[in-house]
Write a protein that binds this DNA or RNA. Sequence first.
DNA 1: TCCGTCAACTAATAATTATTATCTTATTAT
DNA 2: ATAATAAGATAATAATTATTAGTTGACGGA
Lengths: 352, 352
Amino acid sequence: MTKTKKRISQSQIAKELGVSQSLVSLVLNGRRENVSDESYNRIWTLADEKGYIPRGMQPNLAPDVRSSYVGVILRTGLRLANLSNTFSHVHQGLFTVLQQSHISTTFLGGEGDLDEKMLYELLRRRDPLLGIVVYGEVKEPFLRALGALGVEVLSVYANMPGLCHSVLPNEKQSLEQLVDHLTKLGHTRFAFLGGNAKLGRNHARLSALRESLAARNLSLDERNVLNVSNGDRQEGFDCAAELVQRTAGREAPTAWVCYNGLMARGALQFALLRGIRIPQDISLVTIDRTRACEEIHPYMTSAGSDPQVIGEEAAKLLCRSGGGARSVDKIYTDLVVPSTFDAGETSGPCSA
Amino acid sequence: MTKTKKRISQSQIAKELGVSQSLVSLVLNGRRENVSDESYNRIWTLADEKGYIPRGMQPNLAPDVRSSYVGVILRTGLRLANLSNTFSHVHQGLFTVLQQSHISTTFLGGEGDLDEKMLYELLRRRDPLLGIVVYGEVKEPFLRALGALGVEVLSVYANMPGLCHSVLPNEKQSLEQLVDHLTKLGHTRFAFLGGNAKLGRNHARLSALRESLAARNLSLDERNVLNVSNGDRQEGFDCAAELVQRTAGREAPTAWVCYNGLMARGALQFALLRGIRIPQDISLVTIDRTRACEEIHPYMTSAGSDPQVIGEEAAKLLCRSGGGARSVDKIYTDLVVPSTFDAGETSGPCSA
DNA sequence: TCCGTCAACTAATAATTATTATCTTATTAT
DNA sequence: ATAATAAGATAATAATTATTAGTTGACGGA
């Protein structure tokens, strides 16, 4: 380890630039009146380069590490303005818990926005970075690059064993709850309106649905399995339309399981337009726990892990691991948040 | 204005706690050896309470904005998870522009979450705080407290003359565009489905509607003016229901102007359920430019200032003013973003 | 040219903080 | 019981920063 350089003083900066210490003091305290822009910038620049640190207190050494922050990164495809559904709740939960520890939450960008140079810059920031939370599924090399920064990385709604911590919803349990509810109501013919087809999550939900049905000696007619790409309202609508068209002239499914609340809303709207009565003709349920479930009547029957809780757990996990510990054989935690079931107004006894 | 409290010194902290200044110095520089935990914590706590700030440099006044960040605060009533509509777009715009300058965006909390102590903490962070953006209407004392920090404050979707910069939508123009469109289609009887009744924004939109109508020698029947508190989907639905009930048995309005896109969606849903055909029976328009307008068919006829542009302008304004300059007679900018009109599928010729 | 003005800066010094040698007290080893 | 040691603190003072009353010199107008 190199010998610790002695802390630089204002006088040294002054001498080096050929100005008075007074001027340096004025400038570093933000005085602009009667100070030339040139001096102002030269002084700040040198102070920066030399790593000048103010006297009197080092805030990052406070007993509870204040002023540290947690970075948030979104998977490709998500944008802040679209964050509406699941991840806005996650974000809320994350923020709430971190705020209690006076840790702030900084949005760093999308998976695609951040190149290596920008990641490196993160480390140059002076406030300590407690960790990075990744929302959704990102590519493995990206996650590795994050890990290489030596920062705690936590993935939410996706897991990457051995690369980072993760906090996950319990899809298996959600589907089990929904299938249990629906089969008890007499439903046997199911449909799956899937979204985000390219992501593992869609696949996980579909598999869980199949398993839960299989456990009851039911099977999912492959013709009733649909997949769209975004999982928004319009696609939910289109998906429902497609489903109805496909099942014309054969025994139609009576229980529609939607990938998420938004799609369910879209499907609901289609049903409303077509005069399909819910829940009399069709029961419609969704894997979701966001406000989309209750935003307007009818409240939807749904099951899922509360995204806010997922955010809260992510925050707790980061606080616990408390930065540092960048050993090679790090142990990573995978946390699975239990699912809760909520009987709404969109499911009822099977009439077919 | 109250006299600025003088900066507190280590000696004052020492005196108040009955210890030596030396000890305070040691502790605030992070010395733990041979210092009791009790002293360590007591000193940090008091330093915190009194808002002790180190000498030598105020990093947030640096000209160079490399590792600086912008804080975001939400008005009371908004939460991250509800941010869905307007402000998520604002946030997106803000972020996009700031990211280009490598400035990060940090969510600081809600108006209610932040007490004076926490605000002080912001100043002690080592990364320079370029400015604070406030989303929505907050109370004046709160804004003053922010200003007192000596940080650039910018209010979005609300203005507070002489206290901070602001970036605002052009409500007058939006309503003018909508009224122009509707009157050209032959509509003369208008209704206003208002939300966020307690906020000035609702009032501003209603007034603008009245003015635009007055300019055409039309008036707004007071019985057709409704106001609800949140402005969400359910309230839009309820509002439409109330309107229809109120106008039973008299000449009903043919043009519904909704406070925002979410309410419009709710109203649309009500219309759908009731068999009111849109746009054949009723034209429904909204003051909005969020994705709620196009999330699903029918796309809505709407006018408004693009919230993303508002966020972008806010970011540019902050970058331009570039921290610093805390003179007393600061000049504040009020920026008004023009409104754009979008003819959708929810408006048509008046049939009544 | 002379004078006033003002931006830009500094010298001098007041105020504050850092550092170190030293003190006190409790604990432990002998 | 006594000496050695160490934790926890301080007094004194060295080092650094803040502030104020100047100084300098450029510029503009009479």
